[in-house]
Design a protein around this nucleic acid. Structure first.
Lengths: 114, 114
DNA sequence: TTTTCGGCTCACAATTTTGTTAGTTATTGT
DNA sequence: ACAATAACTAACAAAATTGTGAGCCGAAAA
C-alpha cells in the first residue's frame, strides 16, 4: 500500500508542484505504459489482443496498467454489445490521442542518438 | 544490485527490442531526471546550484542521477579551470538539447489536459 | 586548528514497483 | 459434465528504486 507521508511520496508531490512536466513523466514513465498506449493506437484494443501482442506481460499487470490509464483519462473502456463472453474495447481519449505524437518524437529522439 | 536474469530485467530488454520508445522512457522516466535536465538547461549547471534549486533532493541521489545522465550521453561533465575547490560544470550534450523541446511538449500536454 | 566549501561515495534501510499463482464470472461449445 | 473463453481480481513474493546518515578529499579562511 502507498504511504502518504514517506519522503518518497512527499518528493513526488514536490516535483508535481514544481512543474506539470513531472506529472506527465509519472503518468507515462512506468513499465509497459507507453507501449500499451502505442499498441492500442495501432488497433490492439481488446484485453486479449494486447495480451497476444505483448506476450511477456501477465494478465494481472496488464489489468493494473489498463485501470491506471483509465483513471488518468488516457483510455476509455467500453462494453461491446452482443459479445459473449462480454467484450471490452479500449480506445484512446483525446488526452491519449494527443500523447501519440509525443511518444513518436521520443522514439525518434532515441533512434537518432544511438 | 541489478539481477540480469530476473523477469524484470528480461521484460526490460524485451520492451527495448520492440521499440526505441521504451528505451527513451527508461532513460527519462525515473524520479528527478526530467527536472534535473530541465534545470540544467535553465543554467543551474553546478552541483551546488542544482542542490539549491531542488532542496528536496539529497546529494547522494543527485550524484547518482548526474552520473547516470552522463553515462547516457545526455550530460557533459567538465572541470572548470582555476576553481578552488575544484568546480564541475554540467552542460547538455546535443542529445540532451534535443530532449528539451520534447519535455516542453510533455509539460504542455499535461497542462492542457487538467 | 577547526571549519568551510564543492563534489562527491559508501553501506544500508525504507518504500514502491513489478511479477506470480491461483481463482472468479457467466456463457457456450463438446 | 467439463473445458474454453474474455476479462478480470486477490494475496503474496521478488526486485528495483529511492532515500538516509555518515564520511572523504584538498585547500583556504577564521
Amino acid at each position: 500500500m502507498r504511504k502518504d507521508n514517506s519522503t518518497n511520496a512527499i518528493n513526488e508531490k514536490y516535483l508535481h508542484n514544481i512543474c506539470a512536466l513531472n506529472v506527465a513523466i509519472d503518468t507515462i514513465g512506468s513499465r509497459w505504459i507507453a507501449q500499451i498506449v502505442y499498441s492500442i493506437s495501432k488497433g490492439f484494443n481488446r484485453f486479449y489482443l494486447l495480451n497476444e501482442e505483448l506476450p511477456n506481460i501477465s494478465e494481472q499487470v496488464l489489468s493494473r496498467k489498463l485501470n491506471r490509464l483509465e483513471a488518468q483519462n488516457i483510455l476509455n473502456k467500453d462494453v461491446l454489445p452482443n459479445t459473449i463472453p462480454i467484450g471490452i474495447q479500449y480506445t484512446l481519449t483525446s488526452k491519449g490521442e494527443d500523447l501519440i505524437p509525443i511518444l513518436k518524437s521520443l522514439c525518434e529522439w532515441e533512434k537518432s542518438h544511438g
